[in-house]
Computed example of a mutant assay.
Amino acid sequence: MPPLPAPRIAIVGAGLGGLTCARVLQRHGRAVTVFERETDADARPQGGSLDLHADTGQAALRSAGLLDRFHALARPEGDEWRVFDRATGALIAQRGPTEGGGRPEIDRGQLRGLLLDSLRPGTVRWGRAVTGVTPLAGGTCLLLLDGGAAEEFDLVIGADGAWSRVRSALSPAVPHYTGVTFVETGFDRCDTRHPELARLVGNGSLLAKGVGRTLVAQRNSNGHIRGYLALRAPQDWHAAAGLDLGDQRAVREHLVELFDGWDEGLLRILRDSDHGFVNRPLHVLPAPHTWAHVPGVTLLGDAAHLMPPVGLGANLAMLDGADLAHALVTEPGVGDAVRAYERVMLPRSVEAATGSAQGLDHLVPATAS
């Protein structure tokens, strides 16, 4: 009896989870195609620094055969937090790095580049926006592309983030606003241009909390610091204040007013940044977010379990990708593999979503402690 043909596998989204899945599949000799709506790897900035945990993100990289290359890029000294009193600027707590370097930091862009470079040429189809998927009666799935084209696959993996176009094939869930917005800014060549802020931040991150207001500054590679203002506010806070987000001077002045009474050294994060302010309202999926198995389609990462960005999301997305790929190369069929993966991933994500929600409440407290 001739062997069954290799399954046709598509991954929607060239983020960390999707790329990890693709890399592990290729490492085991499986073909895979990644569809990405962005035109190339440098189409947009990839965000700040991530700490990769030994039992999730690093475990996924070990499955991908990339752990040594990760350690060559990572910054174990970056796993450090300094907590300051918001009014006096006094250092009140310090943590890290984790004993044994267990959670080294790496820029998200560097990590994505590491994964992309590990894939066979042509694996990622850039500039191919997916508009949706249609499960078919025979257990396959039709991938619908912008412009009207369609391709059939034995499995479509939705790794396309918060606003996934694949999710609706499995679940009616949509993200909702958490009540917290991050406003991001940045500093270049911080050790020479912003030495006082660089001294406060050290090798890792700075944190100062107030009721409904938190300041965070995080060291990235190449002398860059990212600053974040975390606000408990309506999603349209800027409109309610009569602000045009394009008017950076007015935004800066308004944000400084919101942090009136805070230590002037900490307010450098607001006053002195080299970059403008980017508004990032935080959304989450309902928890628990589960679905009944549908042949030919599944989800991973934020598409499956969007959580607040408190250190778990990227790690879980990569673990999802590695676990799904491992199931696809060890289980007898695609359906068996997806069921095995979902039996592990869905309960894990419920637990993580609860922890992430608590982490956000701790990061930006709604009331005085």
Rank of each mutant, 00 (worst) to 15 (best):
L4I: 11
A6L: 15
V12H: 10
G13T: 04
C21Q: 14
Q26E: 14
R27K: 15
E38N: 14
S49H: 06
D51T: 06
A59S: 06
A59H: 02
R62D: 13
L67T: 02
D79V: 05
R82P: 03
T88I: 05
A93E: 15
Q94N: 15
E99N: 07
L111E: 07
S118H: 07
L119N: 00
W126Y: 06
P135L: 06
G148V: 07
F153N: 00
V156D: 06
S171F: 03
P172G: 14
V174G: 00
T181I: 06
E184I: 10
F187S: 09
C190Y: 04
R193W: 04
P195I: 08
P195H: 07
E196P: 01
A198R: 01
A208S: 14
G210S: 12
L215S: 02
V216R: 01
Q218H: 06
S221E: 09
S221G: 15
N222W: 12
N222S: 12
R226E: 06
L231P: 15
A233P: 05
A250M: 08
A250D: 08
L255P: 05
D260Q: 13
W262N: 11
F277R: 10
V278A: 13
R280G: 03
V297Q: 00
L300Q: 07
D302N: 14
A303D: 03
L306A: 13
P308E: 05
P308W: 01
G311F: 01
G311M: 11
G313T: 08
A317G: 10
T330L: 13
R339F: 01
A353V: 03
T354I: 14
A366K: 00
T367A: 13
